[in-house]
Design a protein around this nucleic acid. Sequence first.
DNA 1: ATAAAACTAGACCAAATGGTCAACTTAATT
DNA 2: AATTAAGTTGACCATTTGGTCTAGTTTTAT
Lengths: 216, 216
Amino acid sequence: MTQNKTTKEGRVGAANKQIILTAAEHEFAKNGFKGTRIQQVADRAGLPKTNVLYYFKSKENLYFAVLEQILDLWNSTFDKATSDDDPAEVLARYITEKMEFSLTRPEASRIFALEIINGAPNLTGFFKEQQVNWMKGRVELVQSWIDQKKIDTDNAHYLLFHIWACCQHYADFAAQITQLQGQEMGRVEYQKATKSLISLILKGCGLKVPASYLAS
Amino acid sequence: MTQNKTTKEGRVGAANKQIILTAAEHEFAKNGFKGTRIQQVADRAGLPKTNVLYYFKSKENLYFAVLEQILDLWNSTFDKATSDDDPAEVLARYITEKMEFSLTRPEASRIFALEIINGAPNLTGFFKEQQVNWMKGRVELVQSWIDQKKIDTDNAHYLLFHIWACCQHYADFAAQITQLQGQEMGRVEYQKATKSLISLILKGCGLKVPASYLAS
DNA sequence: ATAAAACTAGACCAAATGGTCAACTTAATT
DNA sequence: AATTAAGTTGACCATTTGGTCTAGTTTTAT
């Protein structure tokens, strides 16, 4: 008889919560926090507005829940790479993963972009600390490669920023890319872009592109 | 006696309009279109709200005016480069200019970023056509360099996207960069980042970095 | 000087919106 | 079967906000 002191949710609740979260991710990505109406989320979820507020006490609360859900997706194999690994392999794989993320979860990327452009007012406390620590570790890794002369670049921070920038660009600025190319980027185009980017970054760091990542 | 059929603005009007536009750029960059209150713009401009609406008939109108003003800043020497020019010189200069823009007008960059993330609903018609044409021309330029074997990259579109992505990142994601580095990027840091980026991109395309752009 | 136009600004309004309430229905537990 | 908790929903409310109206003040042109 496990029983929380607060309200307990049944099956229906768990399912609805997820439906609402997905709908909310859509809407927040499209309109930002201020621009999103609870009613829109409700409509997309196929539920009355009151119902959304029943599960998530307020709009802010709902937004936090969306952010939290997205943060779990941030992991990658790059997190566990060490200074003994081959930078070419590690970076190529990291870029591949980030590009895959932009392809499959562009909205998650956009929500973060909006949040950061607005000064990241909600990415404080634990979130912030976590990210800072991650960055510190990855900068140290790249720096160790630099020290070992395994990689030819002058600043670990900037290299990482440039990789993110390029990968996220495909998600965040998809609308512009579609306009400028006259067509949406599908999986095929993403693969080409990924190989093009890997080539650019690795060569730019004096690395040889591993055979498996070479453009066909 | 030149006289428009519509209202004509005096000196006070011209000055106020500019004050309001600057204030609006600030606010829109910070909160997006929906998130910005006319009252906020008025407060920042030091004028009553009614006054803002007197000069710009509506919030939408004000937003368009801000967009239009920003678009004039988009020009660069890259626009006039030809296939006879040296790609290394041209690209290095283009990157330098774009980075300078991110440093001096980050808010202009952010307004565009917000607009595009939202699907660029207001960058239609003339704006869109203009941009598409610009892109077409620049892609042709890069392609001609590729054909002449002056530059080693497999796709002109993607190369341009990657350059933009990196440069804009410093404006759009400044809040994140500040958090992760523990300090804001000033002119000195921008110079380092610029050189780092130039090195990355040029080497990534098999180009030699011109002496004047080499990191010290 | 004076008339017309440009500008200022407080009062006000209708619509939109986040959120509450109370009554009701369905699901879960014993 | 009965009781309790979870979930549903329409009616409603207070506040915010884009925008109007009107009446007055300052600039500008003649």
